[in-house]
Structure formats: C-alpha cells, structure tokens
Design a protein around this nucleic acid. Structure first.
Lengths: 220, 220
DNA sequence: AGCACAATACACTCATGAGTGCGTATTAAT
DNA sequence: ATTAATACGCACTCATGAGTGTATTGTGCT
C-alpha cells in the first residue's frame, strides 16, 4: 500500500500472532514506518513553507517528537530532502515504465504517461520535486538527483520518438517538445489546491488534451 | 536603455556640460543607477545560488562594497527580492499590453505575447520570477506579488478569450489553457543556459509552435 | 567658513537553526 | 538477572547571516 514500504515480511501477516513482542523483521518494519512518517511530515512542510523556511524542529514538533529523534532515522536535513525528491522522481520513473509496457500506439502510451505525470505532480512527493530547486540540495546529493531527472527526460523523449516513428503524432522537435511538456506538467505543483474545484484527474485530462491538440483550430 | 531608469532628466544630456559637479537631478540619477546595480548583482546571485543561499554580504562583495551600503539603497533583503520580481513581472505585463495593442487577429496577438513571455523568462529578472517561490517573500510583500501575477494571468485569459471569440483559435478551456501555457513558458527559467546552443528567439519560436499546433497529426 | 546631508565602512548584536554529547528508558538476547 | 542495543529527549555548541549604531569622508548649499 505504501510507496515507502520495502520490507519483505508483512507485519502481523498470515500465520503470525498479533503479539506485542516483535521480532527482528517486525522491528525493522517499525523503523521503516517511523522513517516514512518523518518523511511525510517533512515533505508536507517543505511544500507548504518551503525547504529553507522549514526547520527540523518544526517537523519534529508536528510529529510530537524531538529533533534528535529525526536524526535517529535520517543523517541530516539534506538527506531528508533527497529522500523526498527521490520518492517523487521514482514514481515518475515507474509511470514511464508502466506506460511503455502498455499496448497500443505510441500516442496512446504517451498520453497515458503524461496523464500520470501530472497526477504525480499533484501528490506530496511530486510537488516537492517541482518546488525544490537544485540549490536546496547539497553538492553530494545533486548527482543522484540529476541522474534521476535525466532518466525521466530520456524516457519522455524516447516515447515521443516512438510515437513519431509509428506516425501516431506529428513529427515535432523532440527536445523542445519534451521541455515544453515537462514545464506545463510540472507547473500544477505550484498552483494545485486539493481544496479547489478541480480534481487531479480532471486537471490531467484537460491539460493533456490541450497539449495534444494545441490551440489552433483543426482544419477538419 | 535601462529598464530601471525612470529619471526624467537625462544625465549629461543635450545642453548640459559633462561636468564633474552634479546637480540634484544628476545625483538622483546616480543613486538610481547604483540601486539598479545592486539589484542586478543580487538577481544574478539569486538565480545562480537561490535566494536563501545568497547573503547580502555576498552580493555586496561581488560589487566591491560593504553590506551596509546595500542597506543605504534598499530597506532589507525582502525588498531586494520584491524589487527584482516586480521588475520581471512588470516586463511581462508590458509585453501583454503591447501585444494587445497590436493589429491582427486574436491569435496573432496571442502568439506575439507568448513569444515575448518566454523571452522575458530567460532574462535575469524574469528567471528570478519563475525560480522564486512564494515562501521567499515576506507576508507584507506577498500581496503586491500576487496582485501582479493575477494581472498577468488575467491578461493572458483575456487574450485567449478574444482569440476564441474572433475564431482564430479553437474554443478551448481558458482556465486550464492559461495554466498550461504559463507552466510551459515559465519552465525555461529553470533550464535555459545562455551558453547553450539554442538562442532565446529559437526557443521561443519552437515552444510557441508546439503549443499552438499540439502534438497530434493535423488532418489536412 | 560652516552647515547639512549623502555615501560608505567597520564592527557589533542578535536570532535562528543545524547538528551533537550524553543521559535515560525500554526491550531483546544470553 | 545482566548485558547490549535501540529509541528518544534535554540541553548544548556553533556557524551564519540579517540588520544596526556610529564614525568618517566628501560634496553641495548659503
């Protein structure tokens, strides 16, 4: 269920008593869960107030724990941010892989990807990616971040390429188009309001439609 | 020549000796020039390292002056940022006004505006607008900033509306389209590299073309 | 000459927030 | 029961950077 839960052994799963005494695997799961809770609390605050305006003291307070405890699960503030954006980027990457595995024309796969892309960008971790400038990351974290971004960009370009090759979209400039799409689809991270009238699904459908059709009148 | 020079009296203009003794108007112009220099230096650093990672000591050092001098021309760091983004936003606003004053169809005016919009977003002050999140501004500055943004958004929507009404573009959803365009056109502020292969003009032409035509194959 | 003010610097205060040393409690392993 | 390890908090250090009090110099005004 959770994006962050990588543990192999389900806590209190089948064949296990719901016991207050936890074995090694369960304790590891507990730890992962707490770590995730920290990241969730952090990313919400980062998105709301910005990374620099958020102190780890604030994050800790929102969880009713002390800052020292956060440092038990994460090395430093930089790592907190890196984990957050990595989760967001990995979701995007997974969306690309899933879309490319689908049947249909290149255009259909592309549309699937773009829609999912916008939706992820309206999710906590996705928002964090679009709102976080490179300045926020440390010199050490930057390469990982850039590498992931590059992978996503490459996936986008490849899908554009495939769609052009099978004739399902027009033969446009791939590089510029990829930037244009990315910009348009990242932007909701800045203005999307969960309490607003439009749902993420509505927004993603409408935006992708605009991008696919363009503004010009169709000649048919 | 300069965007920032609002002085009415040209320094050492016609009918004036180029004298080392400066009158009141000239001294005011000097002051404005220095103030502008501070803003320029600041905006470059903000764009390069980010607002929070830039100290006014750094900005001062880059100009060979002391931080105290900056405070002679600007009240505080918040005002430095507000001035920078205001300049950028005002350029966008002016672009909107100019485009709307042009002859031609709604589509032609819109295209003119969009092209100029991208170009401004690859300029120092424009970049600052797109890279600066609302978190960076103080509670007092935010209203001014938001008001300007809203004006630009309104101008964009009005132009879309006019173009739809005169039939020169397709009848699309104005709100979503405005967001989509803004996002796509703001994004270059994040990736544009003055030392890159593409010039701002090339980028703006290509991006606007993609947005107007869309990715779909045209039926004609 | 003498006053007023603009321009600029030096050196300071002060708050904030990242990261840490150490002490304590709870649980697991032997 | 004792030991080891994990979890957590309190209170601290320390750097950084925004903003200021005050002194100094230069220039225009009368």
């Amino acid at each position: 269920m959770s994006v962050l839960c990588f543990c192999e052994f389900p806590v209190n799963g089948p064949g296990m008593q719901n016991s207050p005494f936890r074995n090694a695997a369960q304790r590891e799961a507990d730890r992962a869960e707490k770590r995730e809770a920290v990241l969730r609390a952090a990313v919400r605050m980062f998105n709301e107030r910005g990374f620099f305006a958020t102190s780890l003291d604030d994050v800790a307070a929102s969880l009713g724990i002390s800052k020292r405890t956060i440092y038990h699960y994460l090395a430093n503030k930089d790592q907190v941010l890196l984990e957050c954006v990595t989760i967001g980027l990995q979701q995007l990457l997974r969306a690309a892989e899933e879309a490319r595995a689908e049947p249909g024309t290149g255009r259909e796969r592309l549309v699937k990807f773009l829609r999912r892309y916008v939706e992820i960008n309206m999710d906590d971790f996705g928002i964090c990616v679009t709102r976080t400038g490179e300045e926020a990351l440390s010199r050490e974290s930057l390469p990982r971040y850039r590498a992931l971004k590059k992978e996503i960009d490459a996936a986008m370009r490849q899908m554009l390429n495939e769609a052009i090759n099978d004739g399902s979209i027009a033969p446009i400039d791939i590089k510029i188009t990829a930037f244009t799409l990315a910009g348009a689809l990242n932007w909701p991270g800045r203005w999307y309001d969960p309490k607003g009238a439009l749902t993420p699904t509505q927004i993603s459908m409408a935006m992708v439609k605009v991008l696919m059709s363009g503004l010009d009148t169709r000649s048919e």
